[in-house]
């Protein structure tokens, strides 16, 4: 097998991807980068599913299909919202629009 690694290494990979995604979501102020970050988080979960599925049974892999589909839908929805937001405010930085608060 090409990728010979034990489960801890794989978990390290997915946790790293999760951490990078969280880092991106919290530090990037532009909506497109935030979308990238969201996709990374969901991919981290997907990686987990695939790895455990390879060790256990086929259910995880099938759930990963659905997750990919959901993530794609989420990306589409996100982009729709982002575009509407941009068209209205001329701005891709949501932190600047803070009318709803307190």
């Amino acid at each position: 097998m090409l990728l010979e690694a034990d489960v801890h290494a794989y978990l390290f990979l997915s946790f790293s991807l999760l951490a990078v995604g969280v880092y991106g979501l919290l530090s990037r102020r532009s909506v497109i980068r935030m979308l990238f970050a969201v996709e990374m988080i969901i991919n981290a979960a997907n990686l987990n599913l695939a790895i455990f599925s390879a060790q256990r049974n086929v259910d995880g892999e099938i759930f990963a299909f659905f997750t990919i589909g959901l993530a794609a839908l989420e990306a589409a929805v996100g982009l729709a919202i982002v575009i509407v937001f941009y068209k209205r405010f001329g701005e891709v930085i949501p932190s600047k629009i803070r009318n709803l608060r307190w």
């Binding site: 979501l25 919290l26 102020r29 949501p94 932190s95 803070r98 009318n99 709803l100 608060r101 307190w102």
Partner: peptide
Amino acid sequence: KIQTGDVIDYL
């Protein structure tokens, strides 16, 4: 004031 209105703060 915790409710800053900034989505990144919420995240």
